[in-house]
């Protein structure tokens, strides 16, 4: 029994060594898994990973929905109806994509508020804040365009209002709205463009930006709220206080010495 266990352990080590030599996977994992993080307020920092998790769910369910969704004005609505009523777990997959998007917007908002309140955007983490703002804008645009892909009244009119707002842009209004419409009226080209934005263009920008967000996070480390450092700050303040007192007494002594000298 013990011999088998030893052998298994040896085999495991061999595999790990083999991988490490070729990919540095083991040391990479070691570095990633043993990154220092705050012990206090740990639950506050789950918002970021929850956002990542929900976005992963969106990518996964989005790819699954594409197996049935047809981006044409004639069939878009029918294909979604088909997903909801005839495909195994269709309601689950579409429901997860829909509710995942709703939850994502809540969680990403909370994540942003947390970052704002803890001041985690201060030097040297400014660029991570900028990437984060770009991500939140992209996610809301994705929610907006995805809503319209249903090509039902609700989603269509939301997108329609959005396009109409674009038409008010000074100078380039007409150009901007006809670019979104794919012509001067709502038609098949409008839905094709929506499909491009939601399914290819914006995820293609979103995915690498998430990578940059994570790399920058790991580069400078998680900055927790100030209370994560309260003991160290207290020690610092205490030391500074002592120094000031020492200075004060030292100057007192000097004064005394100088007055005695007179």
């Amino acid at each position: 029994m013990t011999r088998i266990r030893d052998r298994m352990a040896e085999r495991g080590r061999d595999v790990a060594d083999w991988l490490e030599e070729r990919t540095r996977l083991v040391s990479f994992m070691e570095k990633q898994l043993y990154e220092p993080t705050p012990r206090r307020g740990m639950w506050l920092y789950t918002l970021g990973s929850a956002t990542l998790f929900l976005i992963t769910i969106q990518f996964l369910t989005g790819i699954l929905l594409l197996f049935y969704y047809v981006p044409t004005t004639k069939d878009a609505w029918n294909s979604i109806y088909y997903i909801m009523h005839h495909v195994y777990f269709g309601q689950l997959i579409r429901g997860m994509h829909f509710w995942g998007a709703n939850l994502l917007l809540i969680v990403i908002g909370l994540h942003m508020i947390r970052t704002f309140l803890s001041g985690s955007y201060k030097p040297p983490r400014e660029m991570n804040w900028v990437v984060g703002v770009a991500l939140i804008i992209l996610v809301s645009l994705l929610a907006f365009t995805g809503y319209a892909l249903r090509w039902d009244q609700e989603g269509f009119y939301a997108w329609e209002v959005g396009m109409k707002i674009a038409s008010y842009t000074p100078l380039i209004g007409a150009w901007a709205v006809s670019l979104l419409l794919g012509g001067d009226t709502v038609g098949p080209a409008t839905l094709s463009r929506l499909f491009v934005f939601h399914v290819w263009l914006m995820p293609a920008i979103l995915a690498p930006l998430i990578g940059v967000h994570l790399i920058l996070l790991r580069l400078h480390g998680e900055f927790g709220a100030a209370f994560e450092y309260s003991e160290r700050l207290a020690k610092l303040n205490k030391r500074k206080q002592y120094e000031r007192m020492e200075e004060y007494f030292a100057s007192d002594e000097e004064e005394e010495e100088s007055s005695r000298g007179e």
Binding site: W175, L179, D184, G187
Partner: peptide, 17 residues
Amino acid sequence: FIMDPALKATIFNRSDI
């Protein structure tokens, strides 16, 4: 390629209808 309909609609006043 992307701007085709926008250019046709705004500069050449082409309508889909």
